[in-house]
């Protein structure tokens, strides 16, 4: 493994002290080092928002693009340069609000790139307005009487758009976060990774139930392919499927692992059920992974069939005539 410090740029990191972004950046440096990615062939592209400052702190090629458009920028970049290793860094406002259209099209096309979506359920850089993932009723500067309308459930949105890979991680579990980044990088197409990230200034504790040591075990279900859905202290709780309805059961009530929902990350129907578990018990890990050809590989196949034309051929076109003296 390479040295994570080699992937850090010489720029001073400027997030608020205590921000969850620090953890994500650290894990990102470590993952790049673990994967030994050549710095000159790696590009990190972001939009606008706190999380989108990240490319400045990574010593590869990087682009801090415009609000919501990292996905569009990357689509053009990888079509032109399928040889590059491109990562997208975005936030809940950037990807799901102003950039919603580009995101869903990137996912349906299956543009190969990991998408690290830092979800903190708030606009942080603009100092505290509700975001498309803020829960209904959330009080903020722009919603003093509480936010109206239902929030997005990002994994459900991604699956609805045809994402071939959907996963969730959290800033407070570095090891699992690194694992998810590596899985996202391995994936053959768009890899949508939602990262629960705490904004300790404008929305502190939004995910405490799922991320803090004292409550995590009771509310967070870590998914493993082929394994039952377990949680609780010493995995004492499980989830079983009653038709299409997930039910929480206590294993001490006589349930065995065989009675539980066995996770199959290739099952698109069950992935939707997982994505919609948005109450007090939520899944973490790879919700869905499907292999299908990436947009850039399809585009490359299309182009490589055709012979390039010379300038002469282009200028002449298909029909000419000669004007003599």
């Amino acid at each position: 493994m390479a040295n994570p410090r080699d992937y850090a740029s010489d720029q001073e990191v400027r997030w608020c002290p205590g921000c969850g972004d620090y953890s994500v950046l650290k894990q990102f440096h470590t993952v790049l080092a673990h994967l030994e990615l050549p710095r000159h062939k790696t590009v990190v592209v972001s939009g606008i928002g706190c999380s989108s400052r990240l490319p400045y702190y990574v010593n590869t090629f990087g682009v801090h693009s415009i609000h919501g458009r990292a996905t569009a920028f990357v689509t053009g970049l990888v079509l032109a340069r399928p040889d590059l290793d491109v990562w997208i860094v975005t936030g809940d406002g950037d990807a799901l609000s102003i950039g919603g259209n580009h995101l869903i099209h990137l996912l349906r096309r299956n543009v190969k790139a990991p998408i690290l979506l830092f979800n903190n359920e708030i606009y942080g850089l603009t100092k505290g307005q509700v975001s498309p993932t803020s829960p209904e009723g959330q009080v903020s500067k722009s919603s003093p009487d509480g936010a109206l309308g239902s929030p997005f459930m990002p994994p459900a949105l991604a699956l609805g758009a045809g994402a071939s890979f959907v996963a969730r991680a959290m800033d407070r579990d570095p090891e699992h976060l690194r694992l998810m980044m590596i899985r996202a990088h391995e994936h053959s197409g768009s890899a949508f990774l939602e990262i629960y990230q705490n904004c300790n200034v404008f929305n502190d504790g939004a995910f405490h139930l799922f991320t803090e040591k004292e409550s995590r075990a009771h509310h967070s279900v870590y998914l493993t392919h082929g394994q039952p859905l377990l949680f609780g202290i010493e995995n004492s709780m499980g989830i079983r499927l009653d038709g299409f309805t997930p039910r929480t059961v206590n294993l001490s009530d006589g349930y065995s692992h065989d009675d539980l929902w066995i996770h199959d990350e290739k099952d698109p129907i069950k992935a939707h059920l997982l994505a919609r578990m948005h109450q007090e018990i939520r899944p973490f890990g790879v919700l869905y992974a499907e292999n299908r050809p990436s947009f850039q590989s399809l585009a490359q196949n299309l182009s490589s069939d055709k012979k390039a034309e010379s300038i002469e051929q282009l200028l002449q076109g298909s029909r000419t005539w000669i004007q003599s003296e």
Partner: peptide, 20 residues
């Protein structure tokens, strides 16, 4: 590349320009 909207067309083109 037929993009999803006008914005994406311009931004994707810039992405390709960054790529050379």
């Amino acid at each position: 590349f037929q993009a999803e909207d006008e914005i994406a067309a311009a931004v994707a083109a810039l992405g390709a320009a960054f790529g050379g």
